[in-house]
Design a protein around this nucleic acid. Structure first.
Lengths: 279, 279
DNA sequence: TATACTAATGACTAATTAGTCAGTTGTCAA
DNA sequence: TTGACAACTGACTAATTAGTCATTAGTATA
């Protein structure tokens, strides 16, 4: 399905140029040289398109980081994390532009939640890097080190948005690692408390109807993997007629989480169950 | 003109809730309990409203920072800068939300330029703080210290967006000052070169027509200050029939720059002359 | 009370939007 | 050649938008 990919690429171009809200489906189809109808053969709505874009980029990005982090020596984890981050930033310049410029990508609640989930995943990875590379540092400082890394990354990535600013990626990463290491070794005032990790978990309720929709959408996409497919069907069945033991449901959720297309559904399903248990 | 202020406040509320593009003039007038026509008595367009909001906030913010920076002792400049920054952030939570969430506030070119101008002004202030408070540090490191300050500020201000996260403003500022000081005293790898300051000056051409419009708009607002008023009229006349000596024009531009409502026009006029000279 | 003025209204236009669907085209196998 | 089916088209709808303007309400002065 190569046309779907073309739509995604051209749409991303336009989003980077004009922003998400300001880009119409008309413009997208014109740039692709296809009709409006053809667009809706591949995407249910404009929202589904942006969801796909985020999923595609973030899954690739996180997978790449996890791969690198798993195979590099502990003492250089941060460096390699930064290197991958900035490389992706450079290669996927269009996504980076949309991402940096619109930050959390408009005020659409579900979009916001989705980005929040991915950022939380990223934060967990970076925190684990901090815990390994700075294991000798007082662990009360770990969250502040995380904030320092995030801040420096954000601040220096501004350079990528300036055309023609020559960047030596290697040196840039070294600079940041140097500063983070200095802060880690000398800073004595912890500010961020662990309750930060709890309080960030904002999870507005997802309705049963919306979850049903999400499950149906994903079911249409998955054809290759019978385990994921059956797990999805069982989860859908259990959503409408709760029957299964909680542990089994958790197992099914973990089954589907392995598939890139299901990360958001898995997350939403878990939030749904959490909300239900709280009531 | 109290109604204008009400519109601005209610509009800001809505922008913070739904974003700029997603908020309609209809919604704004409904929340104010006024008619659509009444809105257009105070603002030429929706764009003019957002321009006013930015100008009002940024001028107040920058004035406050300049006041504090001018009266505090050199060794605590950074602390007081941070304190003012976060205080304003807390007090003007709505503006902060729009500002943080939409970052550069949509892709409207003029809006982008306007924010860029204010950010440049802010950067200049922070750089001057760095140059004073860290005068003893190798000045090649000054720009990197600036980036460190910006990064930590961005990163830690995330905490303000989490409801109910108790923030001890004093301690927060101390934490950041501590980290910046540590970096300043130990970091040895300068990365940012002074050409960064030049390259950030992206200034897309402003047309003579648009500049005329801007001058007319501002002229309608200014009634009290005859010097500013006459300077504006002379600049407008000279724009259409260039007659005056360059030094005199510069003086006129400096006359109007003193007035809060004219900062953007002054900036635009200067950019226009620069563009013209380059051709 | 009559006049003059400003402040305010809200129905209206013209443009644009996301999404639909009856119909067309192209490509197979029989 | 025929028939079946999927890919694709673009005119269409219904909703929403920014901005306008003839009209009215309210108020102050003569």
């Amino acid at each position: 399905m190569v046309k779907k990919q073309i739509i995604m690429e051209k749409a991303l171009e336009l989003f980077a140029e004009n922003g998400f809200e300001a880009t119409s489906v008309q413009q997208i189809t014109e740039r692709c040289g296809i009709s409006k109808g053809a667009f809706y053969l591949h995407f249910k709505s404009k929202d589904e398109l942006i969801h796909s874009l985020i999923d595609q980029f973030m899954n690739g990005f996180i997978a790449e980081i996890e791969r690198v982090v798993s195979e590099k020596p502990t003492e250089h984890l941060l460096f390699h994390f930064l290197y991958v981050t900035f490389s992706e930033f450079q290669q996927q310049a269009n996504f980076a532009k949309v991402f940096v410029k619109e930050q959390v990508l408009s005020f659409n609640q579900e979009l916001l939640e989705r980005m929040h989930m991915y950022m939380t995943m990223l934060n967990k990875i970076v925190l684990s890097i901090v815990q390994r590379q700075f294991a000798h540092i007082n662990h009360h400082m770990h969250l502040d080190i995380l904030f320092t890394i995030n801040g420096l990354t954000k601040s220096y990535s501004e350079l990528f948005l300036i055309d023609n600013y020559a960047i030596d990626l290697n040196k840039l990463c070294q600079t940041i690692v140097e500063k983070v290491t200095i802060v880690a070794e000398h800073s004595k005032i912890p500010f961020i408390t662990p309750e930060y990790l709890i309080k960030t978990n904002v999870h507005p309720t997802i309705s049963k109807e919306r979850l049903n929709e999400l499950l149906s959408e994903v079911l249409e996409e998955i054809h290759e993997d019978p385990v994921v497919q059956e797990s999805l069907m069982m989860l859908k069945e259990d959503l409408n007629n709760p029957n299964l033991n909680n542990t089994i449901v958790q197992g099914l959720i973990n089954n589907i989480r392995a598939n890139n297309h299901c990360i958001w559904v898995a997350y939403s399903y878990q939030q749904y169950l959490k909300d239900k248990a709280n009531k």
